[in-house]
């Protein structure tokens, strides 16, 4: 499953709130594959089209580290 990566729990939660208000279901977890340059980060798993969710988050100005997936 694909997820968006955030550097903090708060920015991840803010993105989750934004998606919820747009009818998109998501779940905030620790990033299962943290980048060794970043250390602990957070993953927002999105049910549905991750790219449109990403666009919403970027448009709202919530700092996003990128998109990744469990199967990548």
């Amino acid at each position: 499953m694909n997820y968006m990566k955030f550097s903090t729990a708060t920015t991840g939660a803010a993105a989750q709130q934004l998606l919820r208000s747009n009818g998109i279901v998501s779940a905030l977890k620790r990033n299962p594959k943290p980048d060794h340059r970043e250390g602990c980060t957070f993953a927002l798993y999105v049910r549905g089209d991750i790219r449109s969710a990403e666009r919403l988050v970027r448009r709202a100005g919530i700092p996003l580290l990128g998109v990744d997936g469990d199967d990548t």
Partner: peptide, 17 residues
């Protein structure tokens, strides 16, 4: 410790962390 960006020696620049 902030629970975020743990492999950096520097304090995160992102708020509220």
């Amino acid at each position: 410790g902030t629970g975020s960006l743990s492999l950096s020696a520097e304090q995160p620049t992102v708020y509220p962390d």
